[in-house]
Each structure stands twice: as structure tokens, then as C-alpha cells.
Design a protein around this nucleic acid. Structure first.
Length: 422
RNA sequence: GGAGGCAUCGCCUAGCCAGGUCUAUGGCGCGGGAUUGCUAAUCCCGUUGGGGCGCAAGUCCCUCGCGCGUUCGAAUCGCGCUGCCUCCGCCA
């Protein structure tokens, strides 16, 4: 949610951001709604003040001697009350129309975000590491994984349908190793590890900005009115909803580990092979709550952690800054990391790091209190390690002629083996 | 799943049965100040969070878990929901 006061005072700024996104929102209609709402609010509040005064007069007029006066005052208050009832109903309706309209306005866009739409408009920030050289015929991750017997999508589809997988044997240890390595690096920088609930209320989905926009991507448990989170971002951001965080604990950094569930509606035929795009995967996610003036730096900090992890995994990657037209509604600025997949001869998105400024905080009402006052915090999130896709990158980049996969030294203390074999 | 209980401004707490002067009591904590002096004490003032109007001073409205209702008027009465606690059942 954007700040309605900002819209009121500087509609040009909001309009410019919307244009860069290519978002079609009738701002003038919202501004008009806001004006009408505030005019009516004043009327209602004046009537309430009058009612409060009248109530006091009634209370003061106790005893038989004052009964006539009292009856007159009650009659007067009845009229007031009747009028207020209508005004308040009108006000409530106007408010909910305004809230609905505001909830559909996407966030502002960072001045440095590249203009444009689509992949071509993304800015290449840097490319790190050289593609490995091989002297044998390369396999893609699925061929490597199947040959090793560590990925089984065929049986998974028997049990759960397409876009599911069994991970077996050393792949399981590899998962725990990746997560443990990421966790320890982040804990060293003060991130608090957390395993959040993954079944959440609609409120949490709305508060983080996934509803109403991305409702189609979310699994719903209808009987309990709960939703399966597509990322730990949802329960972690919501963890401090309606709280005022003490200034001396800022910034608050978490690294959450959770299974993620995504319906992948509308992606039929895309990434159908292997475990690149599945309905269920595990991920360690960074999340920060920080002071507003610190969020630009915090964003770069999260990105630096992501890059350090990919460097430790010895995977060539590139950093992209996502163009204004491709930002999700809550995002103010976003960096993706894409890993190079030599076996598939393509780049694969493996992390995503966003600064949502106060967009989520306003919906979730997460504030911090310091001497200068109580402010909404800024929230940021970034992938520490998306296990499935990290495995894909490892299998393709570190495959060896005999079908085994080399484990980079930084990961070996966590796997307990240096070569992944059958 | 069944039965019962609880929810007040950071924490504790009064108020609820018997609706109006509740602009919510007191304590703790916190912030500011005064006084006395010695390892501290006493006193005074302030201290929920939002919102509207206003250059400001200020002023008004909302907020007693949430919602709906009854009523001229709800912290207080009724209904629903949520959360927590106790017991039973079930369970990793």
C-alpha cells in the first residue's frame, strides 16, 4: 500500500512511478475519493462531538426535578443519533471503496531502476565467474540427477502429478548442507534463523502484497481458510504485524527456512523438465526490517550475501536489476541473480532480492519507535538459497565425466563428502 | 473433538453484576523537572496508539481483543469470531 498522504501531496511522483511500471490505475478517481472521504469524515466527527456533548448533558440532568429537561435532551439526541447512523454508513462505504482502490496501487519505483518492460530491459549489473570448460559431453541437471538416482520426477507425478519430485540419498544431504551453509553465514551477520508456519491466513497474504494480485498462484485450504505460503517472506514479514519494534533492535534480520508451495498457474509447457519449476521446494530466505533511511544500503547487503553464497558454490552468475515494468506490485527495487547452466546452455534465475520500502509495513502495520517519532519500517527480502535451483546449478556446473558431481570445498564440511556419487 | 474460564492505554491492575460526570483507577517501568545530599531518597509533571482540521498554538474524532447488535447513549448488556489458559479425549 502506498501512502495516501503522498498521493494527496505529490500525485505527480506517484503518477510517474505508475507510468514507469505501465500500471493502469485511475489516480484522479482515488484522489477524488480521498477528498470526499475526508469531507465526510469531518462532518461525521462534528456530529459525534455534538453527540458526546449531548450525552454529557443527559447524564448531568439526573433527579426528578430535571426530568423535563432530560427528556428534551434525549429527544434531541435521538435526532442526532439517527442522522449519524446514515452518515456513518456512508462513511464506511466510502472508506472501503477507497481502501480497495488504494490496495490496487503498486509501490513507487526506485529512481535507479531501469526503464522498460520485459527481460531485455533489465540492467546487467555484473557477471561473475567464467563458465567451466569440459572435455566430455554435458548432461543437463535431470540427466545427471536421474543417472545418480537422486531425482525422481516420474514416481512423483504418479503420486502428486506433474511438477513434483522425490529427492533421494545424497541429494537430501546436499539440501541440508546448502541450508546449513547459508544459515551459518547469515547467523554470523546477525540474522536470526527461523522456521515459520507455512499455512497462513489471507491477512498475511494480503499484508505482504501477494493478495489480491497473485491469488491464482496460491494453494488454498478451503475448509480452514488457510493458504500455503509460496515463500517464507509471507510468515516472516507478518510475524511483527501490528507491532512497534524497539529502535535499539534495528535492523531486525531473519533467515527463514521453509517449504514453498506455488501453483504455477499459467506456466504450462514452461520449464517442464526436471526440478526447475515445481509446485513444492525448500528455500532459505533472508528478511530485514530496517529504518527507512537504511533500506537502500540494506538491499545491497542482502545482495552481497547472495553473491557470496554463489561464489562459495563456484557457480558463474550474473546480477540483473529488474526493470520498472517487470517489478511486482510491492517491489520498489529488485535484483535477481541468474546462474549459468552449462548443461542446458542457459541462465536460470536462482535468487531474487527486493526492497519493498514501506509498502508491506503499511499493510501489516509494522513500525519502529525512536526519538524522532514512530515510523513505518522498511522491509526487504532476498533468497539465501533456493535449494532445488541451487542443486540444478551444482549438478550442471560440477558434473564430471564419470557421472559424479564435485562438491565445492566451501560446501564439503556440510555434506561430509567431496564427490556426489551413486 | 468435548467442557469450563479469561482478554482494559509497555507490564500488572480498578471499573463490568446495577449503561451516562470513564476525558478509564492505582502501581511498576520510562521521560522531564525540583529538593535534599552521599552509594540514595522524596516530591511534581508527563507517558496507549491512530486519524481529521490548522502555518502554529491548539482542537475535535476514534481506540477497553475483533465484529455485529440492543440503546438517545456501551469498557459495562446480547450474539458471533479470534487468541490464551485449565481439564478430558486424540496425537508426533
Amino acid at each position: 500500500m502506498i501512502d495516501v498522504k503522498l498521493l494527496r501531496n505529490d500525485p505527480g511522483l506517484v503518477r510517474a512511478s505508475l507510468e514507469r511500471r505501465g500500471a493502469k490505475v485511475d489516480l484522479d478517481a482515488i484522489i477524488e475519493l480521498d477528498n470526499r472521504y475526508r469531507a465526510l469524515l469531518q462532518e461525521v466527527e462534528a456530529a459525534r462531538a455534538e453527540q458526546n456533548q449531548a450525552g454529557k448533558r443527559i447524564a448531568e440532568a439526573s433527579g426528578p426535578a430535571k426530568a423535563p429537561y432530560r427528556n428534551q435532551a434525549i429527544a434531541e439526541m435521538k435526532r442526532l443519533s439517527e442522522r449519524l447512523k446514515h452518515l456513518e454508513a456512508e462513511l464506511a462505504e466510502l472508506r472501503s471503496t477507497l481502501d480497495q482502490a488504494l490496495s490496487e496501487v503498486p509501490n513507487l519505483v526506485h529512481p535507479d531502476a531501469p526503464d522498460g518492460f520485459g527481460d531485455e530491459a533489465n540492467r546487467l549489473v555484473r557477471e561473475v565467474g567464467a563458465p567451466p570448460v569440459f572435455d566430455f559431453t554435458l548432461k543437463d541437471h535431470m540427466d545427471v540427477g536421474e543417472a545418480l538416482g537422486i531425482i525422481d520426477t516420474e514416481r512423483a507425478s504418479k503420486v502428486s502429478g506433474s511438477r513434483f519430485a522425490y529427492l533421494l540419498g545424497p541429494a537430501v544431504l546436499l539440501e541440508f548442507a546448502l541450508v546449513r551453509m547459508a544459515m551459518e553465514r547469515l547467523m554470523a551477520d546477525g540474522f536470526v534463523p527461523v522456521i515459520p508456519p507455512v499455512l497462513v491466513r489471507g491477512e498475511a497474504m494480503y499484508g505482504t502484497g501477494f493478495f489480491p494480485t497473485d491469488e491464482a498462484q496460491v494453494y488454498r485450504c478451503a475448509d480452514d481458510d488457510l493458504y500455503l505460503a509460496g515463500t517464507a517472506e509471507v510468515p516472516i514479514a507478518s510475524m511483527h504485524a501490528r507491532e512497534v519494534l524497539p529502535a535499539d533492535g534495528m535492523p531486525r534480520r531473519y533467515v527463514g527456512y521453509s517449504t514453498c508451495f506455488r501453483r504455477e498457474a499459467g506456466t504450462y509447457g514452461r520449464d517442464t523438465r526436471g526440478i526447475i519449476r515445481v509446485h513444492q521446494f525448500d528455500k532459505a530466505e533472508m528478511f530485514s526490517f530496517c529504518f527507512p533511511e537504511e533500506s537502500d544500503a540494506e538491499h545491497l547487503r542482502l545482495l552481497a550475501h547472495e553473491e557470496a553464497i554463489w561464489q562459495a558454490l563456484e557457480i558463474p552468475y550474473r546480477v540483473l536489476e529488474i526493470c520498472a515494468g517487470d517489478l511486482a506490485a510491492p517491489n520498489y527495487r529488485k535484483f535477481d541473480i541468474e546462474a549459468w547452466l552449462p548443461g542446458s546452455n542457459r541462465w536460470l534465475e536462482v535468487t531474487s532480492c527486493s526492497n519493498d520500502i514501506d509498502y508491506q509495513a503499511r499493510r501489516l502495520q509494522v513500525r519502529t519507535k525512536r526519538e524522532s517519532g514512530t515510523d513505518l519500517v522498511h522491509t526487504l527480502n532476498g533468497t539465501a538459497v533456493a535449494v532445488g535451483r541451487a542443486m540444478v546449478a551444482l549438478l550442471e556446473n560440477h558434473q564430471q565425466a564419470d557421472g559424479s558431481v564435485r562438491i565445492p570445498p566451501a560446501l564439503q564440511p556440510y555434506t561430509g563428502f567431496d564427490v556426489l556419487t551413486q
